[in-house]
Write a protein that binds this DNA or RNA. Structure first.
Lengths: 106, 106
DNA sequence: TATGTATATACACGTCAATGTATATACAAA
DNA sequence: TTTGTATATACATTGACGTGTATATACATA
């Protein structure tokens, strides 16, 4: 989870992920879409791959990259666990203050 | 979104966020829970605050920090948009290859 | 086999951000 | 008003990471 966040925090990798959400792409297509150098795209793809977020398949000289579900699903569930924040507009501040006063009374 | 990811990618801040999910905490309580120095906790809290992920309220010398929903909701929705990956176990590789062949035929 | 195309790796460099440490501020209580 | 407690800020240092660039590898085709 930590690794997924770290990997996504880099803007170019974030853009690659958003691009691949629309379907698989070859390295060359990604280079064109992002406008950064091919070696950098390959390097970012390697990092994404090591984080388990993409996989690649070979077709002749082409490498077709696509997203892997696991890390995305994991983070989706993690963020779901915060949904109480907006569903109940709750931060428990009042509750905290009451606990605090109780401790003071002891 | 970019900023939220960058902010969460730092392990100590990630831990602070997980801690605050259980409810508001004072700086001192966070220091105790994480076992890192107080200046560092304050600095990480400042970064979280500038990212709009936490707010603080004063009670005497205490600063009580709690989570803010916005950034979490935003990222939750972003990750939801990838749910097609695991709900359909789909990466569209076959589709890509067929498109590729069509282009070759031209 | 020679040439072109697609992709990956290696390496040196610069930058930014986390850390350690000292100190400042704010408030309370004696 | 002095002392203690809680928190914030300042600053120097170090290490990790993204970048630029050169080069290697893999494959196809002529």
């Amino acid at each position: 989870m930590q690794l997924t966040l770290l990997t996504l925090a880099e803007p170019n990798r974030f853009n690659i992920v958003e691009l691949l959400r629309n379907g698989p792409k070859s390295v060359g297509e990604i280079v064109q879409a992002l406008g950064i150098s091919q070696p950098h795209v390959s390097r970012h793809l390697r990092i994404l791959s090591e984080a388990g977020m993409v996989r690649s398949r070979s077709k002749a000289q082409l490498r077709i990259y696509s997203l892997e579900a696991g890390p995305f699903q994991e983070l989706d569930e993690w963020f779901d666990s915060f949904s109480i924040l907006w569903e109940e507009r709750l931060d428990n501040f009042e509750e905290y203050m009451q606990d605090y006063k109780k401790k003071e009374d002891l």
